[in-house]
Design a protein around this nucleic acid. Structure first.
Lengths: 239, 239, 239, 239
DNA sequence: TATGAATGAGCTTTCATTCAT
DNA sequence: AATGAATGAAAGCTCATTCAT
C-alpha cells in the first residue's frame, strides 16, 4: 500500500471491526497504536511514516497494525474517524445552542462555535488535530479523490449545516467569491493547525508549553482574522 | 533517498552541474524531466512521486534523473531553485519600483507586488508554483528542518526585505500577533496555490481553463482578503 | 551498501539481534543464509557476491538478509563474528594448556596452537575459514580502515596475548624485522587458506576430498615452514 | 562488466589496439588512465574501483576508457600486460646472467634474480607492482579461471623457466611438498607487495617515503625468509 | 489476541557501456 | 581522437503485508 496514487479508491474493503469499539473502549494495544500513529502522522505525514516507526513507538508488534486495523489505510481511516465524528457532534451541539438564542448568529459567533468544538474535542490531543488537518489537505490532491469522496460521504451532510449558516452570514459575497474565500480561510486553518507544533516552537522557543492552552490561544487569534477576511470588501471583478 | 526523515540534512552534496545552464537553455532531456517532475510533485507530493513515474512521463531513461540531477533530492532542489531564484528577482524588482514613488506603499500595494511577481514568474507554469508552495509547506515539518535551513540560507535574506516592508505596514500589531497573522496568511497562500488545480476544477467544472489567467484571478481575489486579515482588529489578549 | 570505499565506517549501526542466538541454534533461514554467504564470499569475494546470489543459493527470499542481518555489511559482520569469536576462544584455550607445561613453549608449539585452533573451529567449515582470511586481507586496504579498526577493537586484545608469546620466541629479531616477518607469514596463511579450495583442487585434481582432513594437512605442512621463515638468519641491514 | 563471475571468460574479445603502442609511447590520455587505474586498483581492488573514479582521477572523459581499452576488463588486461611483459623480460635477463657463471645458482641467488627484476621493472611504480600482485591473487578464485588461463597462456612458458630453476634448488622436497611451499611463499609475496603501501605506512608512520627504496628494502628482507621457508625440514608425512 | 518470521513488489541508485557528434 | 549524453541491467534496500503458530 501507499498513500500515493490508488490507495483511497478501495477504502471500504478494510475491516472496520474495531472502529466502533475504539470509540468507547479501545484495547491497550490498538490505542497505543493510534496514539503513536497520530504523533508520527502529524510530525512527518502519512506516506513518510512507516509501519515500523509506528509499531516501534507504540512498542507493539509490527503485525499488530494489520491485525487491528487491517492495513495502513485502515489505520489512517480509524484515526480520521476518531477525530471527525466527535468533532461533528461538537459542532452540531454548538450550533444547537446558538439556535436557542433568538437573534441570528454573527459570523464571529459562528466561527467561535467551530473553534470551541475544536478545542473541546482536540484540546487535549493536538496531534490528532494536526492529523485531521493533514488529512483535509490530502483530500485536495487529485490522486486522492477517493479520500475526498470518503470524507464527503461520511461527513458531508453534517458539515453542510455549518456551511449553510456560514453562507448566510456572508451574503454580500457572490457564490464564486464565497467559494474562494472559504478556501483561503480553510488554508489558514489547515496550515496553521497542521504545523501547530512547529509554529508554537518558533513562537516560544525553549518553553515547555501546554498544548491545550496553545490551541485555544491560536484559535482565538484566528477567529477575528478569518472573520475579517471573509467579510473584506473585494475587487470589483477578478474574472 | 526519501523525502522522509533525514533527507535534507546533506543537501549540499548534490552536484549542481547543469543548474546554471538550465536557466538559459536546458537540454531537452533535463527540461523534460523538470517539467514532468513539477507536474507529478504538484499533483501527488514529493514522496509519493517515484522516479519511474517521472521518467515515464518525461519519456526518458530511468537513469537520466541521476545523470542530470544526481539524485531525487537533487532534482527537487533544482526544481526549487528554478522557482525561487527568479521569484526573488521579481519581488525585488517590484519593490524597487515601489520605492520610486514617494509615498509609503500601502499594504495592498505591497501584496500586489508579491502577486505580480508570482504571476510574472509562474503565470505560465502553474505546476511550478504549486510545487513551490508544497515545498514551503514541507519546510514546516520537524523532520525536514534541513530543508528549512536550506531555504533560509539561500533565500532568507532576499525575503527579509519584503518582510521588513510588510512589518512596517502592520505596525498596529505587536510582534507576536504579527507572527501568527503572517502564518495565517501564508497558510491561505500555500494551501490555495498548492491545490490550485483542484480548486479551479471545482470552481469551473468541465471547463478548459487558461492557467495564467486563473492564477492572476485567484491572486486578485486573495489580495484584499489577506490585507483585511492582516489589519483586522484582534482580540485583546489571547495568551 | 558496498564493500567499497566507505562501508565499514558505520558498522556499529547494524542490528545485532540474532547474533547470539545464532551461536547456539540458528533459525533455518538465517543459518542457510550464513552458509550460502560463506561459500560465495569464499569463492568470489565480498563485493563480487550479490545479495541475490546469496538468497538464491540459500533458497530464501531476497529480503530475508535484510530482515535477519540488517544489511549486506551486517551479514559480513555476522559471518566474521561467527568465525573470529570461537577462534579466539580456541586459541586462548590452547595457550592456557601450553602454560600448564613448565618449559617455555617453542615457536613450533606456539604455531601448533594456532593450527589446532583453526582446525578445531573451522575444520568442518573450510568456507568460513576462507572468508575469515579474506576479511583479514581486506582489512589491509586503505579504503577499509573502518574494518581494520573494527577487527582491532573487537579482537585486538585477545590476539595480543598470542602475539606476545610469538614475540618472545623471536627475540633474535629486532622490532622492525619482526613486523615484516610477521606479515610475510600472515601472507602465507591468508593466501593459502583463502584460496584453499582452488589449491586443493590443483593438488589433487578430480578427487573428492574431505575438507577437514585437508585443512589439517595443509596446516601441518605450514607450521615448520613458517617457523623456519620467522627464525631464518636475515640480511644485516636492509634499510 | 564486472570483475565478478563471468568476466574473464571472454577476454580475447576486447580490442587490443593500443596495447602495443602503450609499450613504447602512450598517448597522454591513455597513460593518464593507466596511471590512475593502477593507483586505484592497488588501493581498492578491481571490482571496487569504478570507471568514474578512474576517469575522474585521470581527469579524462568517462568514455575514454572504453575508447582506448574497449572495456574495464581491457583496461585491467593492459595494466597487467604492461607489468608482466617487462617483468618476464627482466627475469629472463637475470637468469641469463646467472647462467654465465659456471656454478649452479644457490636458491637465494635465484630469488635475488626475481627480486632484482621486480625492483628494476617496478621500483619506480609501486602501484603497478601492487596491482600485479592483486591480479595474481585474483587468478586463484574459481570464478576467475579465465584470468588464470589467460595468465597461463601468456606468461606460463616464460615463468616455467624460472620454476624449473627453482625446482632444481629444492630437490629435497617431493613434488607435492614443493607445490605447497611454493604457494606458501607466493602468499608472502603477493600479500606483502599488494598491501605494500599500508604496511610501509604502518612501519614508518608519518614519514614521507621513497617507494623505490622501500620496495628494494622489503624484498631484501624477504629473500632470506622465503629461502629458509622453502628449504626448511618438514614434517614426515602430513597427508 | 498476538507475534516472529517471511515475502513480493517496488524503491532509489550505481555501473559499465554505447552512441551521436 | 575525444566527449557529453544517454541507457539497460542490476545492485542494495525498504515497505506494507501475510502467515504459521
Amino acid at each position: 500500500m501507499s498513500i500515493g496514487e490508488h490507495q483511497w479508491s478501495t477504502w471500504r474493503a478494510v475491516k472496520p471491526m474495531s472502529a466502533d469499539k475504539n470509540m468507547y473502549q479501545t484495547s491497550d494495544t490498538s490505542s497505543r497504536i493510534i496514539r503513536a500513529a497520530e504523533q508520527l502522522f502529524a510530525e512527518q505525514g502519512f506516506k513518510e511514516t512507516t509501519m515500523r516507526q509506528i509499531t516501534t513507538l507504540a512498542d507493539v508488534n509490527l503485525a499488530a497494525v494489520n491485525y487491528h486495523f487491517g492495513s495502513k489505510k485502515g489505520l489512517i481511516q480509524s484515526v480520521a474517524e476518531r477525530s471527525l465524528t466527535p468533532l461533528c457532534d461538537a459542532i452540531e451541539e454548538g450550533l444547537a445552542r446558538l439556535d436557542a438564542n433568538i437573534s441570528a448568529p454573527a459570523l464571529e459567533e459562528l466561527l467561535q462555535v467551530l473553534a470551541t468544538a475544536l478545542v473541546r474535542v482536540h484540546g487535549r490531543n493536538a496531534y490528532a488535530l494536526a492529523v485531521l488537518m493533514r488529512l483535509l489537505d490530502l483530500a485536495y490532491r487529485p490522486a486522492q479523490q477517493g479520500l475526498q469522496s470518503f470524507m464527503h460521504t461520511q461527513y458531508g451532510k453534517r458539515m453542510a449545516v455549518f456551511m449553510h449558516y456560514l453562507r448566510q452570514e456572508t451574503q454580500s459575497l457572490d457564490e464564486r467569491e464565497f467559494f474562494w474565500r472559504l478556501h483561503f480561510m480553510m488554508g489558514s486553518v489547515i496550515f496553521t493547525l497542521s504545523n501547530m507544533h512547529v509554529l508554537i516552537a518558533l513562537d516560544k522557543p525553549g518553553t515547555e508549553v501546554d498544548a491545550a492552552v496553545e490551541v485555544q490561544a491560536i484559535l482565538q487569534r484566528m477567529v477575528p482574522v478569518i472573520s475579517a477576511g471573509l467579510l473584506a470588501p473585494g475587487n470589483s471583478d477578478p474574472g
